[in-house]
Design a protein around this nucleic acid. Sequence first.
DNA 1: ACCTGAACACCGTTCAAGT
DNA 2: ACCTGAACACCGTTCAAGT
Lengths: 201, 201
Amino acid sequence: MRTRNPILNDTRRRAILVAASTCFVKQGFHSTAMKDICIAAGMSPGTLYHYFASKTDIIVGIIAADGEITRALLAPLADAADFLETLFAILDAIAADLTAEELALHTEIAAEILRQPALRAAQLALDGETQAMIADSLRTAQARQQIDRTLEPQHTAKLVLAVIDGLLWRATVEGVSALAVCITAAKQALARMLLEPERTL
Amino acid sequence: MRTRNPILNDTRRRAILVAASTCFVKQGFHSTAMKDICIAAGMSPGTLYHYFASKTDIIVGIIAADGEITRALLAPLADAADFLETLFAILDAIAADLTAEELALHTEIAAEILRQPALRAAQLALDGETQAMIADSLRTAQARQQIDRTLEPQHTAKLVLAVIDGLLWRATVEGVSALAVCITAAKQALARMLLEPERTL
DNA sequence: ACCTGAACACCGTTCAAGT
DNA sequence: ACCTGAACACCGTTCAAGT
């Protein structure tokens, strides 16, 4: 029994996730065959299954990768000169290169999570981490008097995520063309939620 | 060439839709095989395909059936003694027998609609009808001074549907146990939206 | 361990044959 | 027209064999 090569393992897994994401975004999750992913990643089915146990397991990988991206996007909040301004910039960044196909995949993944308990567990864990990260940033911002100090951080973090979620869902339903309007509405909602009443924009 | 029997056609199509819905709700859209639907409906694949062109076509049928149910649910609004009270009762009725599995199917259908242009067209048409229906009811309610008369009916109808949609999406994400809280929030939002400022509950 | 590609079981859809 | 069930093409997954 030879020992596993962690670097190769990581490289291959990333390559597969990239290939799979590309296919899923373009054709949809259920319309892409494993063969499609194999071709896109330049490997045989056997090799692919050496790195991922199933098509669903690839989604677990995508959820995890998305989680990392989300955390990287939100990182600037932790030490922002202005919390709300930074949050708004993040929203703009999220919207900047968002396509209808990406939103569609987002919905397909949501549906898959609802049907598969294993995925639900993975998603809940990641969501909890993101929430804690925002809650921490909120505490810092409150100490700096940038955010209404009467707000409970944990609960407020949940609301912030709910607003972002709602924004994405609305853009999904109404089409990417509605993104600008949705973002404006989301920003207004966030300002009212997070600032002290007398400081409302 | 014999002539088609409309009654039999309608009966069979309804039976298939009921069988399919049951399977989809329980196991999910992509996990139910056509064979499952055939067994549940008590017929052979050939017969099923005599009434529905494809698995996707069954979803078209389900969307249409859901549309009819929605219209029946909203019908009381057209001649309500109190518009808002009637709307609230409808929300409660929708929530009364809503399961996590039904919400999951709702998300699966949404994903399917986003991927299949034919489904999107069907959905848009139905949504337009529902919207027009609510707009009419709003006009009547405005004439009866039950609703803020400065509101534009068409646009407001859209908002009402958005709130209901948001309510269902939130319940999907947070779980059916959150339904009561979501409904309360939705009712508050609707009251603020529809009543004249000084009459807010 | 890492990789290949044939093979297997399953599923959506079709179609010749029957009434 | 309405119905049956075998058959076809395709897809997710496995596995014996190779390095």
